[in-house]
Design a protein around this nucleic acid. Structure first.
Length: 93
DNA sequence: TATCTGACGATAG
DNA sequence: CCTATCGCCAGAT
């Protein structure tokens, strides 16, 4: 019974190093475009079990409270960050 | 079953 | 750029 949470896990677990998506993007891929909030809850529950650092807000903002940790991990995967927001290729130069 | 909470998203000020 | 409000959904109590 692939629940929404399970779908989210699948999507996030399917991401590879250097990839960065927003909660909304994950929600869409999980089949619930308006469940971005639930996506965050799922990631928070799983903790380090999933590459949560590859997930940012729609505004490109990093996870509140973990900006340092996330920025460090993203940078380690080749994702440049600046002032708490991940610079995604294609979004803006 | 009802109510509250939260690692969200978009719009308005 | 930041704060505030509304809408949304899933999980916990």
């Amino acid at each position: 019974m692939t629940s929404f949470a399970d779908r989210v896990v699948e999507v996030v677990a399917d991401t590879r190093p250097g990839d960065v998506l927003s909660y909304g993007e994950v929600a869409v891929e999980a089949g619930r475009p308006s469940a971005a909030r639930a996506v965050g809850a799922v990631l928070h529950h799983h903790g380090d079990a999933l590459p949560w650092w590859r997930i940012v807000t729609a505004a490109g903002r990093l996870v509140p409270g973990l900006e340092e940790e996330q920025e460090r991990r993203l940078h380690a995967e080749g994702v440049p960050c600046r002032a708490g927001h991940a610079l995604r290729r294609g979004s803006r130069a």
